[in-house]
């Protein structure tokens, strides 16, 4: 799974959690909580969605990596490579 695939997966997961937002239009470095008004329940749901889709366990302590698109992609690339 390459970077574009991962990006598409994260964007798609956020779209399902917060259908009223447009995550594809957000800068990759932007804090999703600020840019899309995501709250801790949304991030909680994002951890669940990505864990299930990729079949990996994302520890709670790693959730802060997911608050930007760039951070989420980099984190998932590392996890899938390791």
């Amino acid at each position: 799974m390459n970077r574009d695939d991962l990006r598409a997966m994260v964007v798609n997961a956020i779209s399902e959690i917060a259908p009223e937002t447009d995550p594809a239009a957000v800068a990759e470095s932007a804090d999703l909580r600020e840019a899309l008004d995501l709250d801790s329940m949304d991030i909680f749901n994002l951890v669940i969605a990505l864990s299930q889709r990729l079949g990996i366990d994302i520890p709670d302590a790693d959730a802060p990596n997911l608050v930007t698109l760039a951070g989420a992609i980099a984190y998932l690339e590392k996890r899938l490579a390791g």
Partner: peptide, 17 residues
């Protein structure tokens, strides 16, 4: 909460709320 969440799968974790 951190200890609980560290030992549970994502869908079984809790939020402070």
């Amino acid at each position: 909460l951190a200890a609980h969440n560290a030992s549970h799968k994502p869908e079984e974790r809790l939020l402070l709320a």
